[in-house]
Computed example of a mutant assay.
Amino acid sequence: MLTKVLSIPLKPGKQAEAEQLVRRFALLGPEQEPATLSFRVYRNATRPDYLLLIGNFADQDAYDTHTGSPAYRELVAGRLAALAVEVVETDHDMIISI
């Protein structure tokens, strides 16, 4: 399993718009992708204009399919990226899951 964690500080005042984009993307992208095992997006109650995305994928091919989809290109790489100050992506290996 491949886990991707994206830390996304947003431009000031863009939280609501960014949340709408990821909600829409979840339905058009990850929900339609059998090898996307989970897709979670978090907001931070004490840090405005910030999102944390965590996705679990069956393998690298699944992630490549996910990021190559038209929905990803339009909504994440396109519109969400335009709202971000930066996007920091890191890979993680799971140690434990309950």
Rank of each mutant, 00 (worst) to 15 (best):
K11Q: 10
P48F: 05
M1Q: 09
V85I: 10
G55P: 01
S38Y: 11
P30Q: 13
A35D: 14
E19C: 10
E74C: 01
L80G: 00
V87E: 04
A45G: 11
L6E: 09
G29Q: 08
L10V: 07
A26L: 10
I8A: 06
A35N: 15
G78V: 10
R73D: 01
E17H: 07
H66S: 03
E19G: 03
D59K: 12
R73E: 04
V76H: 00
E31P: 00
L37P: 06
A81H: 08
K14S: 06
E31G: 09
L28D: 09
L27F: 13
V5Y: 03
M94I: 15
G55Y: 02
F25Q: 07
R24M: 14
L52T: 12
L52P: 01
L27Y: 12
E19F: 06
I8E: 02
I96S: 08
R43E: 06
Q60K: 14
G29S: 11
S69R: 05
A35R: 15
G13M: 12
E74V: 07
R24E: 15
T67F: 00
R79K: 13
D49C: 06
K4C: 08
I98E: 08
L75S: 03
I96V: 11
N56C: 05
L80M: 02
R73H: 04
G29W: 04
A82G: 01
V5C: 12
I95G: 04
S38H: 13
D93A: 11
L28P: 05
H92Y: 08
A35W: 09
D64H: 07
R23V: 14
F57Q: 05
P70N: 07
L10T: 09
L10G: 04
L27A: 15
V41R: 07
T46A: 13
S7Y: 12
S38E: 12
Y63S: 01
T36G: 02
Q20N: 11
G13S: 11
E89K: 13
F25K: 11
Q20R: 15
L37T: 10
E19I: 15
L52N: 02
A18C: 07
V87S: 01
G78D: 03
Y63P: 00
Q60H: 03
L37Q: 12
A84W: 02
D64A: 10
R73L: 09
V87P: 02
S97P: 02
E33S: 08
M94R: 12
S7M: 11
A82T: 06
G78E: 01
